[in-house]
Each structure stands twice: as C-alpha cells, then as structure tokens.
Design a binder for these strands. Sequence first.
DNA 1: CGATTTTTTGAATCATATCAACGTACGTGG
DNA 2: CCACGTACGTTGATATGATTCAAAAAATCG
Lengths: 192, 192
Amino acid sequence: MYTLFFQHLNSKVQLTEEEQAHIKTYLTLKKIRKKQYLLQEGDVCKVIAFVEKGALRAYSVDDNSNEHIIQFALEGWTISDLYSFLTGDPATYNIDALEDSELVLISKSAHEELLQTMPKYETFTRLNITGAYLAMQRRLTSIKSSTAEERYQDFIALYPHIAQRVPQHMIASYMGLTPETLSRVRKRISSK
Amino acid sequence: MYTLFFQHLNSKVQLTEEEQAHIKTYLTLKKIRKKQYLLQEGDVCKVIAFVEKGALRAYSVDDNSNEHIIQFALEGWTISDLYSFLTGDPATYNIDALEDSELVLISKSAHEELLQTMPKYETFTRLNITGAYLAMQRRLTSIKSSTAEERYQDFIALYPHIAQRVPQHMIASYMGLTPETLSRVRKRISSK
DNA sequence: CGATTTTTTGAATCATATCAACGTACGTGG
DNA sequence: CCACGTACGTTGATATGATTCAAAAAATCG
C-alpha cells in the first residue's frame, strides 16, 4: 500500500497529492515469500525495490561458492543490483527474501521517465544514492580500521533491528567473517 | 583552466556556451603544492575539488595513528569529505596533495545554488555520485571475496596510472595491507 | 653528496580460516 | 502434535595468511 514509500519520499522532497498520485501510476506492488528470489545472478536487474514490509538480502557467490552478503534491506530500505539496473548487464548479485515481504517496484522505464519529467524525483534519487554512498563509505572505513570485535559491536549498535531478525551466520557473511569466528567473537564479548 | 572540468561535465550533460559561462562564475581555481593539505581532520570541509592536474589522496588516521587511504584522485576525479561537506560536521578525513596540483573548487553555497537553479547540474551531480557509489561497491566486494594477490592484480589492471605515480606503501594503505605484506605479495607475483 | 624515505627481507606472533564433531532449535510432514 | 530431518550455532584442534618488529638495502630529494 505504498504508505512507507511515500512517507520516505515526502521526507526528502515535499510532494502534493497530485504529484503523489502521478508517481503512483509508475509503481507496482509485489509480494514475495521467504526464500524466493527477487533477482538471480546472470539475469538483468529490471527493478529497484523499496521494502514496505519484510526483509531481503543481496549477495554474491564467489568461485569457492561462498556467499558474501552485500546488503540487507528492511522496511524503508531500497535494494537492487544498481549496476545491472543501470547498464542492462547481467546481475552479479542475487537478491532474495529473508521473510515474507511486500515491495514497491520501480521499473527501469518508470525510473527514467520520472527522472526526466519530475525534478523532485531526480532530487529524491540523488539524495538516496548520496545516503547509500555515505553508508558504504562508513562500512569500508570500519572494515579497514577496526578489529572484528569492534566492527561487530558497531554493527549491533547501528543496526539493532537487523541483528534481531537475521540469522547470525548471515551477519558473519555481511561482516566478512566465517560463522565460527563470529561465534567466538560474540563469546569473547559476552565474557566481559 | 577548467578545461578538464567542462569536458567531464559536458560528457555527462550537454551544455551550451552560456550555461558553461554561468557555471564558471561559481567556480574557483586553486593551485596546491605537494604535501599541502586541502583539508585537515577536524576542520569542516568547505569544498568539492575537481582535479585538473596532479594527484591527491583522502585518508583517515586511526587510534594507533595508522593512516588508511580512502581514495586517490588523479586528473578528472573529484575529491572531498562529502559527509562533512553536506552536514557541516568536522571532517574525519585528511586530504593532501601527492603532487603539485591544480583544482577546480565548488563551495557549498555554489553547489547548493547550482543544484536549485540548474537541473543539468543536479543531473551531473547525481551521475557523479552514482558512479562513485558503484566504484566503491566494487571495491568492497573485492576486499571481501579476493585474496590480497588477486586484489593487487585487479588494482593494477583497473588503475595502472595510479600505480605508476603513487608510492607503493600508499597503495598498500589503500588496499588495507601493510607495506611489508604488499612487498611480499609483489614478490610472489613476479616469481611466476 | 648526505639525509630521508621507501622497499625489501627475516623471524616471531597473532587473528582468522578451515575441518570436524556435536548439541540445539526449528518447521514440516505424517 | 509428535518425530524426524535439516539448518544453525558452538567448540576444539590445526593450518594459514597477514602483522609486527627489527634491520638492511635501494631509491629519491635537497
């Protein structure tokens, strides 16, 4: 029902009722069950998905078939393989649902048309990607300058809701650790 | 003299002579000598700098006073502490010149005014930040799914010009390795 | 040229990965 | 609703790759 989506949109660029109704014509809703794929590696990513409800993850699989979680997306977050979406190249990421979820989808043609016809949508897009950039920069910095223990504590502090809803081995994958190591890190922390 | 800057700008959004002249009134030129700071941690980042000539780096210093290089910027690249620039909070990065350099500077007020009055400038900004986001995502993925050896080879392949102009220990810092480790990695590679 | 910075090499140490086993929780079909 | 099977988390022993500290060699700068 788009409510979270428009809440998010309005918090960044003030929209009239008409503008919202207009944008709505470009959007589609999708429900997706736990464990279902929204995107599989090799396919072209056709949509940007905004999470109204539920939880998803994006991950890549390396040559040794280890999964590496790139991103989690809970309510209010956006998820996509942006490179594939923008270029039309095959996706290098998989995206699947960690819980039954409801998504607001923006197709490529919708995205492009909104960008070209609605300045506020471009502003919204710019602010979104800027936020994503800054978040990723923080993540990169923390990977390089902190120990696993500090990083885990930072993660818990920054994303307590994720830690509660997502299995521990996925958090390990997100942080670039093995499940065994994260288990030991947690043990060390709790014994303090 | 802005030539590279406008080349870059024009390659993303087509501008008329008048539009270019208009934008030019918002820009300033700055020459900066090797080893000079453009920004020091703790100060507020007042500008976005586009590199016309030369080379700079952004880095943070952790609790053990180890430097971590966040980004290099050669000709045609943009460098800033974007978080500090956008929020006005004190910078967490230092930026200094690795060579004598020439920069095109965009102040915060110029940036904001251009964003609000010139849709093409907003488009340019959006495309820039999107590119930066995708580049950083690639970097993050490679950190997590490749060995030091592969990562170094990828770096050399992707940025041969940087490898030629920047001391090896800084590349180590950028890649999150100690200088000793990078030296050994190179030795292993060359003995193949 | 001398002084400083950068790179290389060696040896010891440390953090994390790997492999393997076990206990626990969970949800799914009977 | 119980029982079984699968997924998840923990623990231990060992291996591996990177760091650290120290020192020497090589390159660069003034």
